[in-house]
Design a binder for these strands. Structure first.
Lengths: 194, 194
DNA sequence: ATTACATAGACCAATCGGGTCGGAAATTCG
DNA sequence: CGAATTTCCGACCCGATTGGTCTATGTAAT
């Protein structure tokens, strides 16, 4: 509480829980302030609006995801393993984020751009990771692709494709099986064939 | 849809899902009707109010619970086992119901009586079951209690006591350990000592 | 055609909820 | 200590939301 920034984080952490449970719209500022044991107007001292809090929460979660991804990739060495881990963690984490997305898309398409704004930054980052991965795998003779850039983009497209049903339908089918299917597809199409 | 009663059930089932997720207050009639793919006003043809739906849902869940309890008790024969199963199932089921309770107590104590009204009916029923259980155990020489009635009431009080933290704090500590503690307490206080 | 059932769109009144404002505490500084 | 600054909040505003109504329309049965 000493530091203003610290308290912002506390708000983010608290709001995150409520948002992930009730979604953006159904979460009230009153609830957040109640959970913080502060007056509602006090929160406006730290954040300009409810949306600003939401944005900070999503940003925070995204950073968390990045950290997890880095760790998961460091865990293994070979490019295929790295890719596998990457996709796994990414999908798992997205289950959580999907709550927020769900909330935003709750009959309120207005916020689409706002989410997209946050995402585009991470899309670029992700693309770089994938590109490097493919490139290295290629150089090591494990993969065999003509253009790392476009292959990375293709993989990313697939990944994005996997997200969609996550926030339209709730766990329609087992995620694992989809995951493995995607993985085997990527690898079978990417692995050097003897 | 042929039968009016059937459609009421469909509404109950649908509303149940939404209520259990968002709670009473945060669930809107619009949502329910949207989930049913019907106009909002159509629902009022089957139910008089949102509260009436909620009441029906809670009633329905309570009946489900009763069925589960019967089954669990039929599973075993000895009174201690029956009691153990009874408490186990009851607590487990209450985790689900707690959502509703949570919702109602959400800074809106007005509805307390309404919930209590539904519960009192089941309280009496529960008491009868417990009384019989204690009585039989007693007669078989497994338990040793003076008054079945009051012992049953005491057990029921304990059970109620276990519910409270369920909807004040979310799973504050592991439920199982509390459960076992309660069970061992009841038995050690009730079992015939040699 | 008439009746009874079933549905929904438009509408209403009340409440809700995000956000503001002025000022009170609390804390820091001089 | 007092003044300045930071932090907090009760009360209020006002547009949006929402539970609920009313009337009109469709439709199946008699």
């Amino acid at each position: 509480m000493i530091n203003k920034e610290e308290y912002r984080l506390k708000i983010i952490l608290t709001a995150s829980k409520i948002f992930s449970h009730y979604g953006f719209k159904k979460t009230t500022m009153d609830e957040i302030s109640r959970a913080l044991k502060k007056g509602k107007s006090s929160i406006y001292y730290y954040f300009g609006s409810k949306e600003e809090i939401f944005e900070a929460v999503v940003l925070y979660e995204a950073n968390q995801l990045r950290t997890q991804l880095r760790a998961a990739m460091k865990e293994v060495d070979s490019p295929p393993d790295k890719l596998r881990n990457y996709i796994f963690v990414r999908m798992r984490a997205f289950e959580k984020l999907s709550n927020y997305y769900n909330a935003v898309f709750d009959k309120n398409l207005d916020h689409y751009e706002f989410i997209e704004k946050i995402r585009s930054r991470y899309d670029r980052e992700e693309l770089a990771i994938l590109r490097l991965l493919v490139f290295i795998g290629n150089r090591r003779g494990i993969f065999e692709v003509r253009d790392s850039e476009y292959t990375a983009m293709a993989i990313q497209t697939m990944l994005k494709g996997m997200e969609v049903p996550l926030f339209w339908r709730k766990r329609e089918i087992d995620i694992n099986s989809r995951l493995n299917a995607i993985l085997s597809l990527i690898f079978d199409g990417i692995n050097k064939r003897p």
